[in-house]
């Protein structure tokens, strides 16, 4: 990764030197080493502030929406993108929120990102450095070195990743990586939940949603949520009451998930930012799973020109047939 960081700085510097980017979105050192934060580099000199390491994984794609709005008309925006952010960028492109010409994408073949919380649990303190190797992850604390399995320390979303390298880029750091670090079955959680009774499932969601603070972080970080006025903030008609009763929480989470149905790129950013651990991906993945099953989309999370809910075919199945109560 150290090598990649050097390359990234070089790429960014060249981009500024050529004068074809106005701002470069990447990561910089945060308050803690293991928690790098997004940075918006606006001149060549500040390029040296950029970092790229095993911890820099906060989702960046949504920032493009705001930066594109504020940028000069013909100026272009640089962004560093792991596979998941690459899909987020594609999402914004297909939704026509930004144009491809406007972007300078520096892709990263991503070996997986270390979750600082998980790492802290394992080491007893937040490690100062980490290296994701072929089979394992080496964590470096102030006093020792620890070798652990990838499953134990990579972010949950990385364990299910199928797309470590962005599909579109202008420059690529390192090599293309074809396979995700672990590749657990994406729909394991959904299948487990489907297997329990309706009442148990309802209780499960009541418990999850009751924790929800309605901070809207999940919506604000989502690259598929690009409406100028969100329907959840519409006052006439007011679809979502501001009361946080259990009933309204269902309306909120149903609407949020359903509005990105067929467009979710499975980047996992929503679940990652949730301060109270609502398993939002269990909602998104259920919709992805059904899109895949019903409309024969082999990889329903990959963005494309047309979206499953924006089109139809004459011989579509009726998803409800064969269910209880339905003739």
């Amino acid at each position: 990764m150290r090598q990649l960081q050097k390359q990234l700085r070089q790429e960014a510097e060249d981009a500024f030197a050529d004068g074809h980017v106005e701002v470069f979105i990447g990561y910089q050192e945060g308050f803690e080493r293991a928690r790098p934060v997004p940075v918006f580099v606006r001149d060549r000199e500040s390029v040296q502030e950029m970092v790229l390491n095993e911890f820099s994984g906060v989702s960046l794609s949504k920032y493009l929406l705001r930066e594109a709005e504020r940028a000069q008309e013909d100026a272009s925006i640089g962004i560093v993108a792991r596979g998941c952010d690459g899909l987020g960028i594609e999402r914004l492109l297909y939704d026509q929120c930004i144009s491809r010409e406007q972007l300078y994408i520096v892709g990263v073949g991503c070996p997986g990102v270390v979750d600082p919380e998980k790492a802290a649990q394992l080491c007893g303190e937040i490690p100062v450095a980490a290296e994701v190797e072929k089979q394992q992850v080496v964590l470096q604390t102030s006093s020792e070195e620890l070798t652990v399995a990838k499953e134990e320390v990579l972010r949950d979303k990385c364990l299910k990743c199928d797309d470590p390298t962005p599909r579109i880029y202008d420059a690529l750091l390192g090599e293309e990586i074809q396979r995700g670090p672990v590749r657990q079955n994406r729909f394991d959680g959904v299948e487990q939940l489907e297997a329990v009774s309706d009442d148990e499932r309802y209780e499960f969601w009541v418990r999850q949603f009751d924790r929800c603070l309605r901070c809207f972080a999940c919506r604000n970080v989502c690259p598929a949520c690009s409406c100028v006025t969100c329907s959840l903030e519409e006052e006439e008609p007011q679809w979502l009451k501001r009361s946080t009763s259990s009933s309204e929480q269902f309306m909120f989470h149903f609407t949020r998930a359903y509005h990105v149905a067929g467009r979710c790129v499975s980047c996992g950013a929503c679940e990652e930012v949730c301060p109270v651990g609502v398993p939002l991906m269990l909602l998104n993945e259920k919709l992805l799973k059904d899109v895949g099953e019903l409309f024969e989309e082999p990889s329903p999370h990959l963005p494309s020109e047309t979206e499953p809910l924006g089109e139809f075919s004459y011989d579509d199945p009726e998803g409800w047939r064969g269910e209880a109560g339905q003739s």
Binding site: V39, Y63, L213, R214, C215, A217, N220, V221
Partner: peptide, 11 residues
């Protein structure tokens, strides 16, 4: 610059 205007901190 990196704020996402969510309500986490206040809540």
């Amino acid at each position: 610059g990196r704020c996402r205007s969510c309500g986490i901190c206040g809540y």
